[in-house]
């Protein structure tokens, strides 16, 4: 039941460079992402990992370079040549984006059920009963009690909000999910629960994930592959445990040696 069966990459990234004026956001990044693969982008603040994530998720156009994605019909499409309508459809069906701050990814003034149901309604589901039962099912999968379905996320704890955000993203069975520090700012115990949930969902659904994190423990737990970024460049990449257990670059060795041992 290995998820690494497909020979065709889902995402092909070639020489992606993004300048902010004269300053480099990220430079000459290339990689392939296969179905079911979890790629962690690690590095310290300002290393360009979020710039890269935004370029990949069509939230920020790269200055140069190409990003191609395998659409559900099997065709490879350059993301920045999609029409706005195609791009939006992709973002609310085949993709997910989990923000560090759940409020950025949720509608805080509508109920949990509507938050989860929004994507379904956006793609034309017009049956209230079906939408609601699907939302209820997803709340269960992210361990939110059914009786919270009509509550606003404002009344939710940080961990619950994050789980709601995940449900909202996964309800359309996306194939690719971008995550930006999904466990950042949460208590350690809440983090552990969220990580476990993410790990299970990713494995069960065979999701491809690009996750940005500065937490190497999160990268180790969730990712198959890792890219270490520094000053806009990818300085080292490979199998997650290989990079973390046998780091080659000076900066990676510094990062790994900086982990607090508990």
């Amino acid at each position: 039941m290995s998820v690494f069966q497909s020979d065709d990459p889902l995402l092909q990234v070639r020489n992606v460079t993004r300048y902010y004026g004269d300053r480099v956001g990220c430079a000459e990044v290339s990689f392939d992402l296969w179905p079911g693969e979890v790629l962690a982008i690690v590095g310290e603040s300002g290393s360009g990992k979020t710039t890269l994530l935004n370029c990949l998720s069509t939230r920020l156009a790269p200055t140069t370079g190409a990003i191609e994605y395998r659409m559900r019909d099997g065709s490879m499409r350059n993301l920045y040549q999609l029409s706005e309508a195609e791009r939006r459809l992709l973002m609310r069906t085949d993709w997910g984006f989990v923000h560090q701050n759940a409020a950025d990814g949720l509608r805080m003034n509508v109920s949990a059920g509507a938050n989860v149901g929004e994507r379904l309604m956006a793609v034309g589901d017009r049956h209230y009963g079906n939408i609601r039962s699907t939302a209820d099912d997803w709340l269960g999968r992210v361990e939110i009690e059914s009786d919270r379905i009509d509550d606003d996320p404002r009344s939710f704890s940080g961990g619950m909000r994050q789980r709601l955000q995940i449900a909202r993203n996964l309800v359309t069975n996306p194939r690719l999910v971008f995550m930006d520090e999904p466990t950042g700012g949460l208590d350690v115990s809440v983090q552990a629960r969220l990580l476990d949930l993410l790990r299970r969902l990713v494995a069960d659904l065979g999701l491809s994930v690009v996750i940005v994190t500065h937490d190497l423990a999160v990268a180790r737990l969730l990712s198959h592959r890792i890219m270490v970024m520094r000053q806009g460049n990818v300085i080292e990449s490979g199998l997650t445990d290989q990079v973390l257990d046998d780091p080659r670059e000076p900066y990676t060795q510094l990062l790994v040696s900086s982990i607090l041992q508990v």
């Binding site: 309508a85 609310r92 509608r107 059920g113 509507a114 149901g117 929004e118 309604m121 609601r132």
Partner: peptide
Amino acid sequence: LEDYGLMHVKLYEDIA
């Protein structure tokens, strides 16, 4: 873009 899912979110909230 005829991106009107949000309108139904409002109606959903009403029913909920």
